[in-house]
C-alpha cells in the first residue's frame, strides 16, 4: 500500500477513534477518491479504528461516551460506503444481528449499553430494546430483525427470572433453536445460565463480545 493511501486510511481511523462523524465521512470520501477499495476502507480504516477504541476502553483510557461517539462515526462511514459496496455486488460484512435489552422489571442500563456499544464496534448489527423489556418484546423484535443473538441483562436477583422467562417463551413457541441466548449482569453466573438453558454467559462486556462472535460462527 502506498504512503498516500496509508495516510488517508490513518486519517479515517483517527476520525473514528475521536468519534468525529463529519470528519470520518470526509475522510471516507477522500479514500474513495484516491482509489482505495470500499472494503479496504472498512477493514483498515473503520474496523481497526473501532478495535483500538474498544481496547482503550478496557484500559480506562476511553469511556462509554467515547464508545458511543465512535460507533456513530462508524455509522457515518458506512453511510458513504454501503451503497457503493452494495451497488458493486459486494456485501459489507456484518458479524451478526443482536437484539439486546434489560430483563423485565430492571431499569439498569449501563452494563447493557456498554455491551451494545462493544458489539457494534465489533461489527454486529445491534437493536437495543432498552430497559424493563418483557419476554414477548424480545421475541417479537428478534423475529422482526431476524436476530442471531438475544442478549439479556439483569442487575438484580429478582429480575433474573426475566431472563429465564425469555428462554421459556422461546421454547413454548418452538423457536428456541432460532436464536443464541446470552445472559449477563452483576448477579448472573454460569450456573444460572446453565440452569435456565441459556447458550452463554460472560462476566465482562468484552467476554460477551467474544462469546457472541463464537456462537454466531457456530450457527
Amino acid at each position: 500500500m502506498s504512503t498516500d493511501k496509508k495516510t488517508l486510511l490513518n486519517e479515517l481511523q483517527q476520525a473514528v477513534i475521536e468519534g468525529d462523524g463529519e470528519r470520518a465521512k470526509v475522510a471516507t470520501q477522500k479514500c474513495l477518491d484516491a482509489g482505495i477499495a470500499p472494503l479496504e476502507a472498512v477493514e483498515f480504516g473503520l474496523r481497526d479504528g473501532l478495535k483500538i477504541v474498544g481496547d482503550r476502553f478496557e484500559k480506562l483510557e476511553l469511556f462509554l461516551p467515547d464508545l458511543m461517539l465512535a460507533a456513530e462515526a462508524g455509522n457515518q462511514v458506512m453511510s458513504v460506503l454501503e451503497p457503493i459496496i452494495t451497488a458493486g455486488g459486494g456485501e459489507s460484512k456484518s458479524a451478526g444481528t443482536v437484539v439486546i435489552g434489560t430483563a423485565k422489571g430492571d431499569i439498569h442500563t449501563i452494563g447493557k449499553n456498554i455491551l451494545a456499544m462493544l458489539l457494534k464496534l465489533s461489527g454486529f448489527q445491534v437493536y437495543d430494546l432498552g430497559a424493563d423489556v418483557p419476554a414477548t418484546t424480545f421475541l417479537e423484535e428478534a423475529r422482526k430483525h431476524k436476530a442471531d443473538v438475544i442478549a439479556i441483562s439483569a442487575l438484580m436477583t429478582s429480575t433474573m427470572p426475566g431472563q429465564r422467562e425469555v428462554v421459556r417463551l422461546l421454547n413454548d413457541v418452538h423457536e428456541r433453536e432460532s436464536y443464541e441466548v446470552l445472559v449477563g449482569g452483576a448477579p448472573v453466573t454460569q450456573n444460572w445460565a446453565t440452569e435456565i438453558g441459556a447458550d452463554g454467559y460472560s462476566e465482562t462486556a468484552s467476554g460477551g463480545v467474544a462469546l457472541a462472535l463464537k456462537l454466531v460462527a457456530k450457527k
Binding site: K104, G105, D106, M156, T157, S158, T159, M160, P161, G162
Partner: peptide
Amino acid sequence: PTITKINGMDVVAGSPLELLA
C-alpha cells in the same frame, strides 16, 4: 441481605412474591 427465595420460589420483581419477600 436480599432474600432471593421464599417458600422455595424465586422472588420475581413486581410479582406478589416480591411483596411477600
